[in-house]
Write a protein that binds this DNA or RNA. Sequence first.
DNA 1: TCTGGGGTCCTAGGACCC
DNA 2: TCTGGGGTCCTAGGACCC
Length: 452
Amino acid sequence: MHPAPLHIINSLAPASINKTPEESSGMTAIVDCNSFYCSCERLFRPDLDKQPVVVLSNNDGCIISRTDEAKKLGVGMAAPYYQNREIIEKNKVAVFSSNYNLYGDLSMRVMDTLRHLVGEDRVEVYSVDEAFLNLSMIPFNKMQEVCKQIKDTVELWTGIKVSVGAGPSKVLSKVANRLSKKDKEGSQGVWVLNSEESIRFALQKTSVEDIWGVGRQYAVKLRNLCINDGWQLRNMPEEWARKNMGGVVGTRLIRELKGLPCIPMKDPLETKKMIATTRMFGKPVFEWTDIREAVATYTSRAAEKLRRQFYAAGYISVFLVTNGRRDEKYIYNPQSRHRYTILPIASSDTHELIRHAIPLAEMLYEPGLKYLKAGVMLGSLVPDNSVQANLFTEGNPHAHHKLMEAIDNINFSQRDDAVKYAASGLKRNWKMRQELRSKRFTTRWDELYEIK
DNA sequence: TCTGGGGTCCTAGGACCC
DNA sequence: TCTGGGGTCCTAGGACCC
């Protein structure tokens, strides 16, 4: 049975300067799915419940999700698969190629649950497995309870385990979330920073490189200055951060650590800035025909994404990544080159986009080079229904809409590329490897989960 | 021979995130 | 032999303007 919705919204006072435990806290929470891709796989393989599981990146190259059991065995995050093969085989770790159809669908269910619980306009989907919640209206003394309730409901409704962290700013909520994951038993999956003492304790327990916004470069810089934990970083002067940590980005980070929110919640209606489809080739390719097929196919994929979100693109950019001359011995030294063009009129039509993409690729292609990767990026996005007609362009930009819709429907419900453009090719020498993919249990009729 | 100051817009590239 | 893919934001610096 489903628990009743939380009705959090109505029961609360408007935001105000908070002093007493009963007043609204102004706090932010982040809900983060535990080992998300692995959890999705486990959902349809209950036999793997306590077993180590990993999920691989496209091309089966890197490990991009690990369960706690796999972490304990020493499997590294973002580590190349082949380097961990020995540990994986010796310990019978279950290995999956990534199955984005499945993960995307389960992600949607988690996000829908959150929106149902706290209200649509209080949820910012930050990534496929994370969302910020604006819980500003929840009083301090109710925070723990509310977060626990959110966690339990998501788990009950979707079967995906999550961790919740809450604090006065986004950065602090991320700090809290990390601690809740590190101590799942003790924290029960919820960690709330709602006092100066709790913030100090949490920051002292968090190394600088584990702070959201501190990447490899800044971590080295900070460590060299003997700034080792979050508390020390918080006490650095803002001016220093402005000079040494990327300008306003740095000062914002310091303020967020002090509990002053500087990174606002994003409006869910904001339009995206770009859509891209980029891939490593399954094996290096040399021929123009292969490059052309790949670029046409990636353009088709990107155009599908575009239409699914009701955008049209005003800018298209193509890039190729090479690895030097054909006769040189193999050294991994990728060189990227790109070209772009501004479309005379924003479009979401696959045919039109391919027509512009191929000549760009042709200008980039140089015979004799070894190509590792290609990509297509669409930018200057506008809502599809408001495409500005260009006075000097003939034709109706909506003419292809019906055709596109029909193709998308067939490809989504049958199989990818059941219908495709001739330029996408038939040979597909460049197609990525995906040898260990599970079924698309929730989005394909012919791959539904079977109960015997 | 002399050679300002202030502003905008654009792009490439760096750093970060999951 | 084998190292992913898809994003965001910010800054510096060049081109151009008056």
